[in-house]
Design a protein around this nucleic acid. Sequence first.
DNA 1: TGCGTTTCTCAGACAAATCACAGGATGCCG
DNA 2: CGGCATCCTGTGATTTGTCTGAGAAACGCA
Lengths: 246, 246
Amino acid sequence: MTTTSPQGRTELLRPDGSPVRVLVVDDELSITELLSMALRYEGWQIRSAGDGQGALRTAREFRPDAVVLDMMLPDMDGLTVLGRLRRELPDVPVLFLTARDAVEDRIAGLTAGGDDYVTKPFSLEEVVARLRGLIRRSGAADRRSDSVLVVGDLTLDEDSHEVTRGGDSIHLTATEFELLRFLMRNPRRVLSKAQILDRVWSYDFGGQANVVELYISYLRRKIDAGREPMIHTRRGAGYLIKPAVS
Amino acid sequence: MTTTSPQGRTELLRPDGSPVRVLVVDDELSITELLSMALRYEGWQIRSAGDGQGALRTAREFRPDAVVLDMMLPDMDGLTVLGRLRRELPDVPVLFLTARDAVEDRIAGLTAGGDDYVTKPFSLEEVVARLRGLIRRSGAADRRSDSVLVVGDLTLDEDSHEVTRGGDSIHLTATEFELLRFLMRNPRRVLSKAQILDRVWSYDFGGQANVVELYISYLRRKIDAGREPMIHTRRGAGYLIKPAVS
DNA sequence: TGCGTTTCTCAGACAAATCACAGGATGCCG
DNA sequence: CGGCATCCTGTGATTTGTCTGAGAAACGCA
């Protein structure tokens, strides 16, 4: 089931209307904190664990709808945790976190069961989007929820990565796509450059803050070009997107 | 009966609408886990067993619509298991798993009865496709479900392995065929290279991830050559197939 | 056993995307 | 209506991702 909160955000809910439950497992406290905060903001109920033992214990009791699982845990191998987790909760989808530079040896097979993974360092948008996808497909959330965001005559399909405005297909790069997704998931809402940076860029991004301005300008060229603009600047505050007719 | 889920994936169902039931029998836990994961993702209900005794016990109680049976089991010969299985469930189709170097003529006789086999190491696409075929032909699922995938003017027949575009017949190698089948079973959906690798290549493949790029390029030469392209690259995300007119 | 086919590695060419930098434009305040 | 802060955007260096040719190895079949 999806529902729209007073702020205009669309939330995933379970069929009985209760919030989705997600278990986050990582040994770095800064990561679990970061993720917990971001996922809570999605309206989900979060528990976290710092090792395999804790993960299994919490899973048994918390019965999450999805799990975010770091492959590198102090006490056991990620695949071992996965195996035991599956014995408890056979159908729970798992989002794996892996190091990008890790020898890609035992990444194989991770997506085979419909699970997914992201590499560290990740962007929160990416984690949230993939989790939403997993939960949607797992059927823990209502099946009617679909993968298309719509704001005015602008649409964004999270499955096909297709973006259209007024029926015209628009090609976006990966970063542009994530930025637009973030804007569209928060329509009519001012998002500060800091918020955007924290969400759309990976958590270790160390560059200039004006990449956001740059990418907003890219998006405008592609989306607002010669039309009634949908992306607006609130000087000193941030940006927002809203339907053109206003 | 077939039904199309919100994601656009086609699922096999039994005539009464309940999910298809499959029993997986293998003594290697990693194999049963891998298969269970993948088959569950097909929307099927899975039980697994690690030896002949367990297989027979589970079969009696679970009454599967199909069985995946490793020929090498610790306690009894695959043929013995088959014989006893047949006494319980005369009509259930069986997919045998055999080592590649095993004497193949023993198997040849078995498949005459409508059963089928794949050799280890297998790809998940292959197992799933063959299981779908067995279940379809056994009549456990609705007979109207057919074996031809269609995307735009591109068709792929899973039974005859025939591929055509705009009426022209196209010859594909085994790997090209499986890759195309995977793409066509997930039309308009971005599939990452990891997903493709996990699904189309065998589970023990340890090679370079760029085989996917290579085979995509082979497919393009054969399918998109001089026509409106149907296979598209989403840089940094993966590949997708969709009808040319769009 | 030998020949054609298929699979896969490797490496270079190429294209696209990302981002820093800096000058120009715009809005806001007094 | 100036002056300052903020925002916009052109340019180009660098990095990253993808495509494909060439050839080696494995396979399948006669």
